[in-house]
Design a protein around this nucleic acid. Structure first.
Lengths: 151, 151
DNA sequence: CAGTATCCCAAGCGATACTG
DNA sequence: CAGTATCGCTTGGGATACTG
């Protein structure tokens, strides 16, 4: 089946771009993953207007990737923070893929600001496609299959 | 080190969003991966105006993810097609991550339009973080490390 | 076919000010 | 602090027409 004839209304990649195919959304997600959880911190660190941060946070909460939680330090008043939901956590491979591509091809000096390591061994990890035994399959052995019927 | 104090000028994820953090660019990349290579086909299939397709193709070519190639069928005239470069191929995990997240969480019926399989065994593959032996590491064993100095 | 050029409306976004 | 409201510029992007 030819992909160009496939109706992509229910394409997972397209659905993903509709929610996450946006610079600001991706940067917020990155920051929350890396431990930045408060509105003000996000705004300062990302460097966008409060309008943008508000909109994108709302979108992420609406789609269930982030949850909003109020917490109160003793003596001070209520603060809000944004935390990853279960669903949000499953988007981690996307961030890792971006990091990997970015540092490999887009950043000249290879000083990586962040990395992903195995807590047991301390070695750094890479993204790969694995079979159901958890073993990586080499790229030349991977095939894309179009399952859809023509529309 | 606290991520919110890190200067993200040279962040790989940010660099990636600057090039690929855009709905149209991502959809073009998807289509080229899936075998759609001609301008007209891309435009029809993605459903954007020719202006957009032109701009985004140019961006992808400028950044070296796609190459432009002219080919000539006998008897007909010259056609153009866009093909993945080596660099473009390395962005595949990003597409796969999007597909995986999209089908898992965003598409209701789980009829996947595309999948990634091992050509030898025929089994379908999943994204994972692997150690240098190519073995997947369970998520709870993965840690994000911030390497940067404060700015 | 593979775009480019123009027109024009809509959306994105920053700046600033304001609110509970 | 955590936003919302408003303003106004700038960009995005569809429609249409045109070119080699």
């Amino acid at each position: 089946m030819d992909w160009k004839n496939v109706d992509t209304t229910h394409c997972g990649i397209k659905a993903c771009t509709d929610i996450l195919g946006d610079k600001w959304t991706l940067l917020i997600l990155r920051d929350v993953y890396f431990g930045v959880t408060k509105f003000q911190d996000l705004q300062k660190h990302i460097g966008a207007s409060s309008t943008i941060i508000t909109q994108r946070l709302k979108k992420l909460v609406d789609h269930g990737l982030l949850g909003k939680s109020e917490y109160k330090q003793q003596g001070s008043r209520i603060h809000n923070e944004y935390i990853l939901t279960e669903k949000g956590v499953t988007a981690l491979p996307l961030l890792i893929a971006m990091a990997q591509f970015g540092y490999e091809h887009l950043i000249e000096n290879d000083q990586r600001l962040s990395s992903f390591i195995d807590v047991n061994t301390g070695e750094s990890l890479n993204l790969a496609l694995v079979n159901n035994k958890g073993q990586a399959v080499p790229r030349e052995q991977i095939k894309i299959v179009i399952n859809a019927e023509p529309n």
